[in-house]
Design a binder for these strands. Structure first.
Length: 523
RNA sequence: GCCCCCAUCGUCUAGUGGCCUAGGAUAUCGCCCUCUCACGGCGAAGACCGGGGUUCGAGUCCCCGUGGGGGUACCA
């Protein structure tokens, strides 16, 4: 059974069929009434695409969920649809306000704005319950008085589905007896009676899907404590919200036939389904905490830009079809196409995320980066805080260090030497450029300082002076630059030395050279 | 166990029967640029899971196997 999903050529999938479906209530109609009856009818069939992201509040927004959200959102933006956020909070133990807050924060950080919601699954329990009761009244579901444990055991012994054992027992009981027990207050669960035959549905990414109903359990839709079960709740909520496209993780694929059956039994129009592959860790296993950071918030903390995260997430299981990888939001929205979503799960590669982030960082205007760096460096006592407030200076600094950083964290790290009130010297640098030949270092530092004395403090003028000095001394410019770099930054590596000079300014340069000279003498 | 999904360089991917001697990106390595580190440029290495079919021709279609993932709850 269900072999059909395989090998259905992509072109034959009909992804956007749901643009022309009728029957959803409460939809925005794109057309308005027209004098031409024929056209009006046709217009009325075209409904707005309505998508939702429905995470359960587990404490944070993980990257897999975020990717699903990105796909939904991109699709909504592309087609002028509505993107809805719904929190699946019916599992009381795992849900609380704080967890919900974390999801909302993650979404906000990404910049994925929802058009409706957040709605909460728990808001619909009365409706869910009513729908379960309705199915019972219509004979499409039955009361199950059995003991779950005992049923499972018998099913194991007789090698059959537990739910079929439950069904057997319910049938043996008979409707009158069931009614009598219910009246008497004996607790029961309500199970949906799966009809014979097979269940088919269309999936945006997998194509035509078929499941033999023999393999589908009579699922409980209302627990004996009168609370609804997930599979009923989603169907009820999605139908109630007029969802046209259910784009969600692959892990729901096997549950979908149950839901389809529920849609039909309840008389609700079916949405188009699209099951996107899961994201795996570097070892090919399902992404989990032991793979390191799995929450988008952790990447935010490390200094990943939201636009880079969206770009990266969009490229996991999808590609525009050409060689583009670095893409802006607009480009993503324009290029996104559900038909090109892959079936294969992909590995979350943080290296590539960093690279992409570097690209986004490089094109990000420096003035937009200043605040990020300020918040990262603010309050550090070793840093001259007043420099952080000098907007123009900060922008110059960031423009220079930006191309050599991949994350905001790195950017902040590279900014530190320029803000330090007392420079920290890297041991390796001191050893290599000062200690090896202290006399030469002293001499060179002294001459450089003298050459800069009355120089015009511009990149060009300083470079001219330094190179002229090197020429005069008959040494390579590097011989002067390296010890100078250690004196100015304390490090082996830094931006181009003339940029460093300009950023530091005449006074701090001479201060640092004096300090350097002092240190070399002391050593 | 049963049901379902998936399978191209380490990783992300292009590929819809001949354009594939399998393309791009990342990571790795080398060279260039150069005051260092990055950036950038150039180059190297690196893949169609295995076996059967179908076809004049298969990475592409079919079957089997293997591997990975998911589901199978009175979890979501």
């Amino acid at each position: 059974m269900a072999r059909e999903g395989r090998g259905v050529p992509r072109r034959e999938r009909e992804p956007h069929r749901a643009f022309r479906r009728r029957g959803h209530e409460g939809f925005e109609r794109r057309g308005r009434s027209s004098r031409c009856a024929y056209d009006a009818d046709r217009e009325a069939e075209i409904v707005t695409m309505r998508l939702r992201f429905a995470p359960s509040p587990t404490g944070y927004l993980h990257v897999g969920g975020a990717r699903t959200a990105v796909f939904n959102w991109l699709l909504a933006r592309k087609h002028g649809g509505v993107f809805i956020l719904r929190i699946e909070d019916t599992d009381r133990d795992r849900s609380n306000e704080e967890h919900t807050r974390a999801i909302l924060d993650g979404m906000s950080w990404l910049g994925i704005h929802w058009d409706e919601g957040p709605h909460f699954q728990s808001e619909g329990v009365e409706r869910h319950k009513a729908e379960a009761l309705r199915l019972l009244a219509e004979g499409k579901a039955y009361r199950d008085f059995s003991d779950a444990e005992a049923v499972r055991e018998e099913a194991r012994v007789r090698d059959m589905h537990p739910s079929r054992v439950a069904r057997e027992q319910a049938e043996a009981l008979g409707p009158e007896e069931a009614e009598r027990r219910a009246e008497a207050g004996v607790p029961f669960a309500i199970r949906f009676r799966v009809p014979d035959g097979e269940t088919r549905f269309h999936d945006l990414v997998h194509g035509e899907m078929r499941f033999g109903n023999d393999d589908i359990d009579d699922l409980v839709i209302l627990r004996s404590d009168r609370t609804p079960v997930y599979n009923l709740a989603v169907v009820s909520d999605d139908a109630n919200m007029g969802i046209t496209h259910v784009i969600r993780g692959d892990d729901h694929l096997s549950n979908t036939p149950k839901q389809v059956l529920l849609y039909r039994a309840l008389g609700f129009p079916e949405p188009v389904f699209g099951h996107v592959p899961l994201i795996l860790g570097e070892d090919g296993k399902r992404l989990s905490k032991r793979h390191g950071a799995t929450a988008v918030g952790e990447y935010a903390d490390e200094g990943i830009l939201p636009e880079a995260m969206i770009n990266f997430l969009a490229l996991l299981g999808w590609s525009p079809g050409d060689d583009r990888e670095f893409m802006t939001l607009e480009e993503l929205i324009d290029a996104f196409d559900a038909e090109r979503i892959l079936k294969k799960s992909s590995v979350f590669d943080t290296e590539k995320l960093s690279w992409l982030n570097g690209k986004h960082l490089a094109v990000k205007p420096s003035d937009q980066l200043v605040d990020h760096i300020r918040t990262r460096l603010r309050g550090q006592s070793s840093l001259r805080q007043e420099l952080l407030d000098d907007q123009a200076w900060m922008e110059t600094l960031l423009a220079v260090i930006k191309p050599r950083a991949r994350t905001l964290d790195e950017l902040a790290d590279q900014a530190r030497p320029f803000l330090l009130s007392d420079l920290a010297y890297e041991e390796k640098a001191v050893e290599k450029y000062w200690r090896k030949d202290p006399d030469a270092a002293l001499d060179r530092l002294g001459r450089v300082a003298a050459a800069f004395e009355d120089a015009d403090w511009s990149k060009e003028a300083l470079e001219e002076r330094l190179r002229a000095l090197a020429e005069e001394m008959g040494v390579g410019a590097g011989k002067l630059i390296h010890p100078l770099r250690v004196a100015l930054t304390g490090n082996m590596a830094s931006p181009g030395i003339f940029d460093v000079l300009v950023i530091l300014g005449r006074d701090r340069v001479s201060e640092r050279i004096v300090e350097g000279v002092k240190r070399i003498r002391e050593a």
